[in-house]
Simulated scan of single mutants.
Amino acid sequence: MSKKDAIICCRHDSPIGPLLLGRRGDDLVFLYFPKDGKVRALADDWSLDETGFDAARHQLDGYFAGELQTFSLNYHLEGTAFQHSVWQALAAIPFGTVKSYGDIAKEIGQPGAARAVGLANNANPLPIIIPCHRVIGADGSLVGFGGGLDLKIWLLDHEGIDPAQIRTPGQLGFDFS
């Protein structure tokens, strides 16, 4: 693997626990949430180097401090054309608002693809930065989130969305439409 293709990582403390950020060159390529309160382990072919992450760290700190609502970072996402269209729609969801999987499907011109939107949402490599936590079920229920529902509730509450107004999945079941 060339140096240009190498994944460089840094750990970043946050109110939700230690995050692991990864970059390839100057582009951010992933953000991993903590698991069981611990930072994700590095893959064998990744290296740890705290330099080159100043903008991402600064903006994440601003987001968690309530001072930043929109991220402006260089990133590179690997995925299908469909995933890219979903991720672009996610990035356009304003701070403090939510949309359903069906809303996103309609926005990308594929109104019958709500379940596929859910799968693309789940594959989002840059949660928070590309705000997949802002997607809910058509019935207003909290459904699916890679960081777990407690973290999704925390993030929505942080953005001023009253989690009490959003149902939990057990109330009506999962509805991706």
Rank of each mutant, 00 (worst) to 15 (best):
P163G: 08
G148L: 09
L119M: 07
G140D: 07
R134I: 11
A114G: 04
G112T: 15
G112N: 14
A113V: 06
A123C: 11
K152N: 06
L151A: 12
L149Y: 08
K152C: 07
L149M: 12
G112L: 15
W154I: 09
W154F: 15
G147S: 11
D139V: 10
I108P: 13
P131K: 00
P131E: 03
G109T: 08
I128Y: 04
G112V: 12
L149S: 12
G140A: 08
I161V: 15
A123L: 08
G144L: 09
D103M: 00
N121Y: 06
P163D: 03
H133G: 06
Q110W: 10
A114S: 15
H133I: 07
L149D: 11
R134T: 13
R115S: 08
V143S: 02
K152F: 07
G102P: 11
N121Q: 13
G148N: 08
E159P: 10
A120I: 06
H133C: 10
P127I: 04
L156K: 01
H158T: 12
E107V: 05
K152Q: 15
V143D: 10
P111V: 08
P131L: 02
A105G: 02
E159F: 09
G112I: 14
K106Y: 07
L142Q: 04
I128K: 00
A123D: 11
I108L: 14
I129P: 04
Y101F: 15
C132P: 05
H158W: 13
A116H: 08
G147Q: 07
I104S: 02
F145E: 01
I129F: 02
V117N: 00
L126W: 02
L142E: 03
N122P: 06
K152T: 01
S100D: 05
E107G: 10
I128W: 03
Q165V: 05
H133A: 06
G160Q: 05
I108Y: 04
N121T: 14
A164T: 14
G112H: 14
K106V: 15
G140P: 04
G109V: 07
V117R: 01
G144Q: 09
A116I: 01
